[in-house]
Design a protein around this nucleic acid. Sequence first.
DNA 1: CTAAATTAAATCGTATCCGATATATTCGCG
DNA 2: CGCGAATATATCGGATACGATTTAATTTAG
Lengths: 177, 177
Amino acid sequence: MSVSEKGAPMSLKNGPRADSRDDSMTNQEPKPAAGDRRLDDFLCFAIYSANLAYGRAYKPGLDELGLTYPQWIAIVALWEQDDQTVSELGDKMFLESNTLTPILKKLEAMGYLRRQRDPADERQVRVSLTDAGRRLREKGMHMNLVKSSGLKPDEFARLQKSVVRLRDNLIKAMEEE
Amino acid sequence: MSVSEKGAPMSLKNGPRADSRDDSMTNQEPKPAAGDRRLDDFLCFAIYSANLAYGRAYKPGLDELGLTYPQWIAIVALWEQDDQTVSELGDKMFLESNTLTPILKKLEAMGYLRRQRDPADERQVRVSLTDAGRRLREKGMHMNLVKSSGLKPDEFARLQKSVVRLRDNLIKAMEEE
DNA sequence: CTAAATTAAATCGTATCCGATATATTCGCG
DNA sequence: CGCGAATATATCGGATACGATTTAATTTAG
């Protein structure tokens, strides 16, 4: 079985004219010599395209909530811990203020959170959910936002951990220049 | 060991004030009842943040090539098979013409590819690499674009396949409404 | 104690993504 | 043949990401 599953849909609409040539080499890093690998053999592309797919799978549910994906993540992160600074929230969401500030301003305009300078350190802005924000989180909690991943619980859990490990390793490698 | 690895860096700069509360429930789907899960327990968020991390890890190498990530993917996809239509390329990249067209126009302006209407069907635009585009692909091939994932080949390969399966399942589930 | 360095947000410009729509070409059916 | 439906790109507006810069507040050095 090649990397791209037998009859799996590979695209938005039509399967990609499956020209599966057999290759046992499925990973990129363990063998850095050859560069002529297929797109699906790049882990980075698998992640990239899975992210696109997740975004599309979530869209209908998020539309019901009237939120975008990053907006929803921000609500969830604030539900976990309220009254965070922009930086703290950014640490959890892997975003910085240049991206986060506009998102938070929009959520504030929607009435789901409050932004206020910390009196103890006026450089910081503390963000906290409003009652409406908490109600929204509750609503999303009881909705089934996700389509089925189709993976068995076992594989699902392993995948979850591996992706987190991958992410953290990439970031650690970057921090070490 | 909790989902978020022991000392793993969880953010761009500082670890997120690790408040790891112990939870054995690491996956989202197998138990759709409870909605009060932590951000790291969402597979969608793991993918989302891993994608951000990959983008940052690739940035330095791609800067050397003078390309963005989607631009690079397009070059790789055309290297695999030249003279594709915009739709075919979109099938492989999981993008549609609204996103792809501007990217292709830019690459054309850079001199890395040609875009021309198919004489047999003027609706279609066929895209093919120029010599400069092929040279660029060769250059990227010999560069080490990726930092280390830090995963063992075994886990790396499994992860690769699982992510592809996840992506294809999500898309298939959407196609079935 | 104050000027320089540091830090936290915000702003700005560029490049994706994506839904909705527009335009052009081809197909299908009477 | 002819015209409405379907198809392939392209365009446009809104919402992220992100590097670079700016502004304001705090900390640190001398």
